[in-house]
C-alpha cells in the first residue's frame, strides 16, 4: 500500500494524469481555517449591516411610511447575508481555481474528475451540499471510507480534492568555501558519474536538512553517508583529511558540475 491515496484521471484529450488525493488531514485543516474565516466574514457582515440599518432610518425620520422601510431593510439584509453565506466557498473556488484560503494554506485543490479546473457550477453544487455533508459528519465518514475520498458534494459535482504537486524549487544548500576546490579535485580523480540521480538527491536532502537535525544523530548520519558515498564513486582513500560534511558538499558540487 502507498502512504497517500492516489488517483488516475483521464483528461478530455485522453491524457492520463495521476494525482495524490488531499487526504483527511489536509481537508480537516482546510475546513477549520475556512470555517473560522467564513464565520468572521458573516459576523462582520451582520455587524456592518446592523449599523447601517440602524442609522439609515434616522435620515428618513419624517417619512410617512417608515414601517415599509424597515421591511425592505430586513429583506435586503437577508439577501446580503445569504450572498455572503453562499459566496465564500463558491467565490473562492471559482476564482482561485478550486482553492479557498484554507485549501491554499494546506496546498490542496478541487478539480473536476477529468482533471479540468472547477467552474461556477461545480463550486455551487459542492457548496449547496455542504450543510448535508456537515450533518452528522456524513461528509467526514465518506471522505474517510470511500476510495476516492469524495463527500456528497464531490459526488454530485463530479469533483476530486487533490494535493498540489510541490513546486520544484532550486536547491538552497549552504556550502562552505572549502568545498569548491575539493569538488574540482574529486571531479578529476573520482568516478563521479557512478552517482545516480537518486544518490545525488540523498546527498542534497542531507545538506539541506542537516541544520535542523539533532547534532549527535547528524554527525552519525553524515559519517555513514560520506563512507557510503566514497564507496559509490570508487574511492578507497580520501585525498586528504576532511569532515564528512565537507566531503558530501564537495560531492554535491562535483555532481552538479559534471552533469551541467
Amino acid at each position: 500500500m502507498r502512504l497517500f491515496n492516489s488517483v488516475k484521471v483521464r483528461t478530455p484529450e485522453s491524457v492520463d494524469l495521476e494525482f495524490t488525493l488531499a487526504g483527511i488531514g489536509n481537508r480537516a485543516i482546510a475546513l477549520l481555517i475556512d470555517y473560522l474565516l467564513w464565520g468572521a466574514l458573516l459576523v462582520t457582515v451582520i455587524v456592518l449591516w446592523g449599523l447601517f440599518a440602524y442609522n439609515l432610518p434616522l435620515y428618513f425620520r419624517g417619512l410617512a411610511n417608515s414601517e415599509a422601510l424597515e421591511t425592505w431593510l430586513a429583506a435586503v439584509a437577508w439577501l446580503v447575508y445569504s450572498a455572503a453565506y453562499a459566496s465564500y466557498f463558491v467565490g473562492f473556488e471559482t476564482l482561485w481555481q478550486g482553492q479557498t484560503p484554507g485549501k491554499r494554506y494546506t496546498k490542496i485543490r478541487v478539480i473536476c474528475e477529468n482533471g479540468q479546473p472547477v467552474g461556477l457550477a461545480q463550486a455551487a453544487l459542492r457548496s449547496l451540499l455542504r450543510p448535508v455533508d456537515d450533518f452528522l459528519s456524513i461528509g467526514l465518514l465518506l471522505i474517510l471510507f470511500t476510495k476516492r475520498e469524495k463527500r456528497l458534494g464531490d459526488w454530485v459535482a463530479g469533483t476530486l480534492v487533490i494535493q498540489e504537486e510541490p513546486a520544484i524549487v532550486s536547491a538552497n544548500v549552504a556550502l562552505s568555501a572549502d568545498a569548491q576546490p575539493l569538488a574540482d579535485q574529486l571531479g578529476a580523480t573520482a568516478n563521479i558519474s557512478a552517482l545516480l540521480p537518486d544518490d545525488f538527491a540523498v546527498i542534497r536532502s542531507y545538506l539541506q536538512r542537516r541544520t535542523l537535525m539533532e547534532p549527535k544523530a547528524k554527525a552519525e548520519l553524515g559519517l555513514q553517508l560520506a563512507r557510503q558515498a566514497r564507496t559509490l564513486i570508487g574511492l578507497h582513500e580520501l585525498p586528504f583529511d576532511m569532515t564528512p560534511d565537507l566531503f558530501l558538499e564537495a560531492m554535491y558540487l562535483a555532481y552538479q558540475q559534471q552533469s551541467s
Binding site: A22, G23, I24, R27, A30, S205, R209
Partner: peptide, 15 residues
C-alpha cells in the same frame, strides 16, 4: 522520503 506536513501526518495515520 521527506518531512510531512501536519495534514499529511494525520492522513498517513488514518491510511
Amino acid at each position: 522520503s521527506s518531512p510531512m506536513s501536519v495534514g499529511n501526518v494525520v492522513s498517513a495515520g488514518f491510511r
